[in-house]
Nucleic acid binder design. Structure first.
Lengths: 110, 110
DNA sequence: TAGACATTCAACCATTTGGTTGACGATCCC
DNA sequence: GGGATCGTCAACCAAATGGTTGAATGTCTA
């Protein structure tokens, strides 16, 4: 049920949720801290996080009264792989390939 | 306006629309032929095609009374590249990387 | 024990979405 | 010209979505 392309793509379709994912790229965060930069209510953020969780894009773990959110990249990779099936029509697709390599080399120093 | 991640991911979130894209992977098709395998009305299919077009995922061209639909892979690649930024958290991300290379090498014989 | 804090729940609202049906505008062909 | 075919438009409908507010739950701490 999680990881279905339906729920993954639907989750990614919202800019607030994509922004949350980008924030989690930096570090795991508590719900309140996730909500801080946005102008919508905490309850709304809570719903967004629920949708991301059901899609399998993040995982939430409660420690004490704080619920931590962390990225769960597997779901996104499933969707990414599905999409790559459509790249084969381009002459070469070098563009995406290069950027892929760049982020790969660029961001794994440790 | 087309090619925004919002509209692209929203378009991909519907199983009917993903099925249409897969069909177009085989060949360009007329609207009526796109609709044939589905059990919903032609008008509904027409709406789906409009959404895919606005997202930039397909292009439609009218020749005579027939409107041809063809895949437009650039939009999907934009989304794919965005998503690949999230792969870096995996230990290595070799899985997606390999498949990426495979489809790349596998499908560009000409 | 009493607040204060972190988060969700419940009820509600407006808008969007995916579907329907029927009428309509083009276009092809006899 | 007239009928069949291709596709969209318009009006409508039910359900889902993204937001709100206020109350409720659970946990930490003074």
């Amino acid at each position: 049920m999680a990881n279905s392309l339906d729920t993954i793509f639907a989750a990614l379709a919202d800019p607030t949720r994509r922004a949350i994912l980008s924030m989690l790229l930096e570090d795991d965060m508590a719900v309140t801290d996730v909500a801080e930069p946005f102008e919508i209510s905490l309850a709304a953020i809570s719903k967004h996080l629920m949708i991301l969780t059901r899609a399998g894009l993040i995982a939430q773990e409660k420690r004490g009264r704080v619920k931590w959110c962390k990225l769960e990249p597997d779901a996104m990779r499933n969707a990414s792989v599905w999409m790559q099936g459509f790249g084969q029509f381009e002459p070469v697709n070098l563009d995406a390939f290069e950027r892929f390599l760049e982020t790969e080399l660029d961001s794994t120093p440790e």
